[in-house]
Design a protein around this nucleic acid. Structure first.
Length: 199
DNA sequence: AGTGCGATTGACT
DNA sequence: GTCAATCGCACTA
């Protein structure tokens, strides 16, 4: 497998929804003591300015401060006391917006991911934000990390041709639930969510 | 200091 | 299909 070139901060689209679409087809690369684990992003969601569903909606707090970093930093939080969620901060410093990475197509380090998840089935290793974080052993210790440079976790380009990208409503939220801010690779078996939303 | 609630998952009917 | 698990944290007082 070729060396992974990190995404340059300068090439990230400036607005959150555009970044969410842009990240579909890019790579998430995780360096672990056992080796590299990586996957292709197949599903994202944007949490934009003025969005009641966004964690930055009510201003900065100890939990969400990473969301207010300049674009390309990790915001990791624990959902439902059970699952960690990986987000990429977007826009300019002081703006609390970001992109949730919801699903990956596993590429490298699949054996590592299987161990981290405790399951075998390839399709379920990183299909869903909590599963993805578990597969890559992502937790709050990675919160605030710069994802535009090599390190324990980063984003990289992929020369693979991305398939058609669909757009629709986000999963699992109750506020501002009708906004079409979810992006996914049409027809991918590695996308989460109900079949009716993945066509 | 107390309370209620999730950007989910997996187990179960 | 339904539903409980589980806990950090934002919010109220």
């Amino acid at each position: 497998m070729a060396i992974h070139r990190p995404l340059a901060r300068s090439e990230l689209p400036g607005d959150t929804a555009s970044l969410a679409r842009y990240l579909v087809g890019k790579l998430v690369v995780r360096e672990l003591p056992e080796g590299i684990a990586s996957g292709r992003i197949v599903e994202t969601e944007a949490y934009v300015t003025g969005d009641a569903a966004g964690h930055g909606y009510r201003g900065m707090t100890p939990r969400n401060r990473s969301l207010f970093l300049e674009a390309g930093h990790a915001y990791v939080y624990l959902a439902y006391g059970i699952s960690y969620m990986l987000n990429v901060s977007s826009e300019t410093p002081g703006i609390g917006t970001g992109v949730l990475i919801r699903a990956l197509e596993p590429l490298e380090g699949i054996a590592i991911m299987r161990l981290n998840r405790g399951i075998e089935r390839l399709r379920d290793l990183a299909r869903g934000p909590g599963r993805l974080a578990q597969a890559l052993r992502i937790d709050r210790s990675l919160d605030g990390l710069d994802l535009c440079r090599e390190g324990p976790l980063w984003l990289a380009v992929d020369d693979h041709q991305a398939g058609d990208i669909g757009q629709g409503i986000r999963i699992g939220i109750t506020k501002d639930a009708d906004r079409p801010l979810r992006f996914y690779v049409k027809g991918s078996a590695f996308v989460s969510g109900p079949k009716s939303l993945n066509e």
